[in-house]
Design a binder for these strands. Structure first.
Length: 593
RNA sequence: GGGGGUGUAGCUCAGCUGGUUAGAGCGCUGGCCUGUCACGCCAGAGGCCGCGGGUUCGAGUCCCGUCACUCCCGCCA
């Protein structure tokens, strides 16, 4: 007895099936009507099969009526294609199915979004008709790949002795960090749950509860504005926590997982075998960025000494005025043309900078450009020597307080590398960024605040907190960066209540605040907390990198738009007065003019 | 919250210094076509030029405002 819908899927048939009677069901991908001969490419999740029918066939009249994306079932015989008509680009290209019977299972209205050929369509149309968008080959494959990657993550984690535990979705609002999504409590009028920004406290409590080596593909919710690489609202982390570990133990557990994942799913692109460890300070100095793209070979250098007391009065004056001020050089191999340097300069001005000083080296090795003229041949060649530049290269200069210009210098480095084609896009370059500062100066509130995670262990422990300038204290905090994308953040946690209280005190939070906001965790620390630490690689960003997509919505099945709306489901939506009443909520909407 | 970009047919886009009836390709509909696989050929339908106001004899085009989408900044412990 033949199955109601299919004996094979649309990607299954091969030469070896020739002669067999088969039944296929799927979507009409494409119709090619030659009048006397009609081709239907039938598509399902598994593939595409060419089906053919001629006018003398009983089902021909019906076959002529089918349109793109109708769902049909066909019966037919598998025929070998003649040599000239074999299509080597299709898995099923050696055969075709000669239709003997056809049933329309479901019709499709005229498409607001064509599936075949996947032409570019506006994103709001794609989101509103996501079910059609998801039929398209690229997105469909991305989503399948995402699933495979997550499967592999689980497999690697379990193999390394980790166990997956679930943590609550409805939890308490936490005072630090991002804006929470709130869920009103029906049973407790005026009180709210919050969706977790990450299972941070839970995973630490799991360690304190005596479990070890936890992981979870954890949903995280933050009510912050979207970016290309950041969904509004929700995203997933491969959340990891381990007990009795040092930073090295965490690195040794996580590094192979990512390396193997990228090797397996990275399409053959080379993957960093041993992730270099770069301190935060070094990353800022060399790359002007705490998530450097190491595929870009440019490394910045301090060249202040060549400008001190030089004829280039602007820089010389800055160096004189404040000894914090420095001059950094951005060497640009192959950038030695006036056209390129001018382009960089006007880009810098477009960024709101006064400009970008440069020297470029033409044939004969003489440095050209206004800076070279001002500092003279000797200093110019000293700079050239320090940076190991050759004829045809250029160098750009940024001066002032590095704290203020580092970010711009980093952007200039990125731009020069991209414009000159120095960045090798066919690689996955990983690194660890370590030794993040524990605190930073909050200019808005004129106070010291946590720069990263308030639960991190400060390097040097209690002694450091008591004796050092807070801004000099480093935390056991680390990031994993790949190709300029921050993939993970983690830390060795603080497991001692007295250090926690002191750390918060430095950031201006008294013990009563800690008790109120983190009472559960503080209590857990007082009853035997193991030293522990962990990390949380961003699943969406990993998939994005592996799929080679610049946008997180291309690896998300049902994403929201930038305004945090789900155009398919219509979220967020209005709710009934009765629902609000039950939740003891009265709306107080902003006036819209 | 702020800044940039975009907005003309279902889609991608053209439309000059303001000047008759706003175009092309794809898609759609109909017709023809027996070997296509981005099938081909012919014909046709399809437009509040995002919306509102202003300047002008005259606005797709210039000005102001507004809305939508997107990218970025802020934000994201």
């Amino acid at each position: 007895m033949t199955h109601t819908y299919r004996t094979h899927n649309c990607g299954a048939l091969r030469k070896t099936d020739v002669g067999n009677e088969v039944r296929l069901s799927g979507w009409v991908h494409r119709v090619r009507d030659h009048g006397g001969l009609l081709f239907i490419d039938l598509r399902d999740h598994y593939g595409l099969t060419q089906c053919v029918i001629e006018p003398d066939a009983e089902a021909f009249a019906l076959a002529e009526t089918v349109r793109a994306e109708w769902v049909i079932r066909i019966d037919g015989r598998v025929d070998k294609r003649s040599d000239e008509t074999i299509n080597p680009q299709m898995h099923t290209g050696d055969i075709e199915v000669r239709i003997s019977a056809l049933e329309v299972l479901s019709q499709a209205a005229e498409l607001p979004l064509p599936v075949f050929g996947e032409p570019d369509y506006p994103e709001d149309t794609r989101l509103k008709y996501r079910f059609l968008d998801l039929r398209r080959e690229t997105l469909h494959a991305n989503i399948v790949r995402r699933s495979e990657i997550i499967s592999a993550m689980r497999k690697h984690m379990v193999e390394q002795g980790f166990t997956e535990y679930q943590t609550p979705i409805l939890t308490a609002s936490s005072p630090e960090g991002a804006r929470d999504f709130l869920v009103p409590s029906r049973m407790h009028p005026g009180r709210f749950y919050a969706l977790p920004q990450a299972p941070q406290q839970f995973k630490q409590l799991i360690m304190m509860a005596g479990f070890d080596r936890y992981f979870q593909i954890a949903p995280c919710f933050r009510d912050e504005d979207a970016r290309a690489d950041r969904s509004p609202g929700e995203f997933y982390q491969l959340d990891i926590e381990m007990s009795f570990v040092t930073q090295d133990d965490v690195f040794n557990a996580v590094e192979p997982v990512l390396r193997d994942l990228f090797t397996e799913f990275g399409g053959g692109k080379p993957v960093t075998q041993e992730f270099p460890r770069i301190t935060y300070a070094e990353a800022m100095r060399k790359y002007g960025n705490d998530k450097p793209d190491l595929r870009n070979p440019i490394e910045m250098q301090d060249v202040s000494r060549h400008f001190a007391g030089s004829g280039f009065k602007i820089f010389a004056g800055m160096l004189e005025k404040d000894k914090k001020n420095r001059v950094w050089a951005i060497p640009a191999k192959t950038g030695g043309s006036r056209a390129f340097c001018d382009r960089m300069n006007s880009w810098a001005q477009g960024e709101g900078q006064p400009g970008l000083g440069y020297i470029f080296f033409r044939n004969g090795g003489e440095g050209a450009g206004p800076v070279a003229k001002n500092i003279g041949a000797e200093r110019t060649s000293a700079i050239r020597e320090q940076l190991e530049l050759e004829d045809g290269d250029a160098v750009f200069f940024v001066a002032g307080d590095p704290k203020k210009f580092a970010e711009f210098a980093g952007a200039a480095r990125t731009r020069a590398g991209e414009e000159l084609g120095l960045v090798d896009h066919e690689r996955f370059d990983f690194c660890w960024i370590v030794d993040f500062p524990m605190y930073e100066w909050d200019e808005d509130n004129k106070k010291i605040d946590f720069s990263h995670n308030p639960f991190s262990m400060p390097q040097g422990g209690m002694e450091a907190l008591e004796s050092m300038d807070p801004l000099d204290i480093k935390g056991w905090q680390y990031d994993i960066v790949c190709n300029g994308v921050e993939l993970s953040s983690g830390a060795i946690r603080n497991h001692k209540p007295e250090i926690m209280l002191k750390a918060f005190e430095i950031a201006g939070y008294g013990p009563e605040v800690v008790e109120e906001k983190f009472g559960g965790m503080l209590r857990a620390m007082q009853y035997g907390a193991p030293p522990h630490g962990g990390i949380a690689p961003g699943v969406d960003r990993i998939v994005m990198l592996l799929a080679g997509e610049p946008n997180i919505r291309e690896v998300t099945m049902f994403p929201m738009n930038q305004q945090a709306e789900d155009l398919l489901m219509g979220a967020p939506s209005n709710v009934s007065a009765a629902q609000l009443r039950e939740l003891h909520i009265r709306l107080n909407l902003p006036n819209k003019t």
